[in-house]
């Protein structure tokens, strides 16, 4: 069983960082929303508060890892320009997609939207984590602040969902392959 380095990094980008972020999202909304429901009398242990902080900081870190690996590792492989006369475009995902009107939309809408919209997420989640760390349980007293945090967190979720959706389909129609082969098991 083998995998190429580019495949492995693409899997880490999408299935590792991106999917973990999406899975963690409902927990983040729960943590923030709990401060709204419980109100000023909310009793929370230091341990729980530390775990909430760790959870949100981890989500922000996952968001940064996702966009940085996507922009600076995978995107250059995706947009590589094939040498003149190349007929097999399988190693050049962007060129492969735009070579046919049946698949060009996956680049023109999918990748062009995905490459930018994904960047809203780390900005929003860094802000969300910072505000939660700074205010902690006091967030219950700042209703407008809390609502803004929830709004930006929802925008982060939407952005990640769009990027993840198109990422999955782009990888189906024009996967990024190549690089050294890593042998996972023999026989």
């Amino acid at each position: 069983m083998e995998i190429s380095t580019r495949d492995l990094i693409t899997v880490l980008h999408g299935m590792g960082f991106g999917t973990l972020f999406m899975l963690a999202f409902s927990g983040a909304i729960g943590v923030i929303y709990a401060t709204a429901v419980a109100g000023p009398g909310w009793q929370v242990s230091r341990w729980d508060r530390r775990m909430f902080r760790f959870y949100l900081v981890s989500m922000a870190a996952l968001a940064w890892l996702t966009v940085l690996s996507g922009t600076y590792l995978i995107y250059p492989w995706y947009r590589a320009v094939p040498p003149a006369g190349t007929t097999d475009l399988s190693g050049y995902p962007r060129a492969l997609l735009v070579s046919s009107p049946r698949t060009a939309g996956w680049h023109e809408l999918g990748m062009e939207w995905k490459e930018h919209i994904a960047w809203f997420t780390p900005i929003a989640m860094t802000m969300v984590a910072y505000i939660f760390i700074t205010y902690g349980p006091q967030l219950a007293r700042h209703r407008t602040l809390r609502n803004a945090v929830l709004g930006f967190a929802a925008a982060a979720f939407l952005s990640t969902a769009v990027a993840g959706f198109f990422g999955a389909f782009l990888n189906k129609y024009a996967p990024v392959h190549g690089g050294a082969t890593i042998v996972l098991s023999r026989g």
Binding site: I123, A124, T126, M127, Y130, I131, T134, Y135, H142, L145, A148, V149, F152
Partner: peptide, 9 residues
């Protein structure tokens, strides 16, 4: 501090 973080975002 929260307002600054939100507006900057």
């Amino acid at each position: 501090r929260g307002a600054a973080a939100i507006l900057a975002a």
